[in-house]
Amino acid sequence: MIVVLEVFTLALLTLFALTSVVAAYLAIRERDLVRAVVFSAIQSSMYALIYYVLMAPDIVLVYIPVSVGLIPAVLLFVIKKTERYEGE
């Protein structure tokens, strides 16, 4: 039973970690900064799930408001006041 749960935990962690890699790659590649912020928020929510599986409820409570709520809000304020597209 415990072995099954361990494999299940590791499988969940692998899923979240690989999804976060994809989201981080898209966030860095994307030239539209608003979309990049959304991808970064997806990566952050994957990290929140990783923290939850790693038995850190304290960090989940602080990480969800900060990294999924407040940092995208800050970045959207900055993008609104500066430029929306990167490059050219």
Binding site: A27, I28, L33, S40, Y47, L75, V78, E86
Partner: peptide, 15 residues
Amino acid sequence: PSLVKKLIAITILSD
């Protein structure tokens, strides 16, 4: 090149 993109990358790094 964009400073905002660099800031996003810094948040990913610290996370």
